[in-house]
C-alpha cells in the first residue's frame, strides 16, 4: 500500500520539486543561511508557511505567527482523514498531511497509502530545497520548464474535482476562494471556504425543500 501511495504521489513530487528549488533560492536571497533553509524544509514541510517565514524572517513575530495562521486549515484535513481512514499511527501520518497529500488521500482507504504519498512528496520537497540552496538557478531560469512542472498542482486538484462530482460545494468553494484571493488572502481563503461552504450548501438544500 505504501508503494501504491508512492506511485500515486509522483505528480505531487513533480510539482513540489521546482517549488522547493525556488524556496531554497528565495530563502537564501532573504538572508537565511543554508543549514536553516534545509532545516525549515525538513521540519516544517509546508510550502506556503515556509515562503511566508522566509519572506518575513527579518520580523521574528510575524515570521512565527503568519505561517501558523496559514496552516490552521490543516485542522480540517485531519478531521476529514480521521473520518475516512483508520489511523493507527497519528504521530507519523500527521507529519506528511500537506494540501496535496490530503487531496490525494481520497484515492486510497489505508493509512499506509498516505505514508507513501507523503514519503515521495517529502523526498521531492527536501531534495528540491537542497538543489535550490546549492544553485538551482539553472533549473528555475528555464521558465517554460518550471511553469510546466508547477502546472501539476492545478491539474491534480482539477482531476480530483472531476472524480468528486459535488459541483455545488466545488462552485461555492471556488467562488469564496476567488473573492478572498482578490482581496489578497489566498491561504486564508482556503480555510474560510472549507468552513463556510457546508453552511451555504445546507442553507440551499433547506431553501429548496
Amino acid at each position: 500500500m505504501i508503494r501504491k501511495g508512492v506511485i500515486y504521489g509522483i505528480p505531487i513530487a513533480l510539482g513540489y520539486f521546482p517549488v522547493a528549488v525556488t524556496f531554497g533560492l528565495m530563502a537564501l536571497a532573504r538572508g537565511m543561511n543554508e543549514t536553516d533553509v534545509v532545516l525549515a524544509s525538513m521540519l516544517i514541510f509546508a510550502g506556503s508557511a515556509q515562503f511566508a517565514l522566509a519572506t518575513l524572517i527579518d520580523y521574528p513575530l510575524n515570521a512565527t505567527l503568519i505561517p501558523i495562521i496559514l496552516n490552521l486549515r490543516h485542522l480540517i484535513y485531519g478531521c476529514i482523514v480521521s473520518r475516512r481512514v483508520e489511523v493507527k499511527k497519528p504521530f507519523l501520518t500527521a507529519f506528511g498531511l500537506t494540501d496535496e497529500v490530503f487531496a490525494l488521500s481520497f484515492k486510497g482507504d489505508d493509512e499506509r497509502f498516505i505514508w507513501g504519498l507523503a514519503l515521495i512528496a517529502y523526498i521531492a520537497w527536501v531534495f528540491g530545497t537542497v538543489v535550490g540552496v546549492l544553485g538551482g538557478s539553472i533549473i528555475i531560469s528555464n521558465e517554460v520548464l518550471y511553469r510546466s512542472l508547477v502546472f501539476a498542482f492545478p491539474a491534480l486538484f482539477f482531476v480530483l474535482l472531476l472524480s468528486n462530482r459535488d459541483w455545488i460545494s466545488a462552485f461555492i468553494g471556488a467562488f469564496v476562494s476567488l473573492m478572498l484571493m482578490a482581496l489578497g488572502y489566498p491561504s486564508i481563503g482556503i480555510l474560510i471556504s472549507g468552513l463556510f461552504t457546508p453552511f451555504v450548501v445546507r442553507w440551499l438544500s433547506w431553501r429548496s425543500s
Binding site: 474535482l161 459535488d166 468553494g173
Partner: peptide, 9 residues
C-alpha cells in the same frame, strides 16, 4: 462538503 470546497479552493 468542506473537503470538496477545499480541493476546489
Amino acid at each position: 462538503s468542506s473537503s470538496t470546497a477545499i480541493i476546489s479552493s
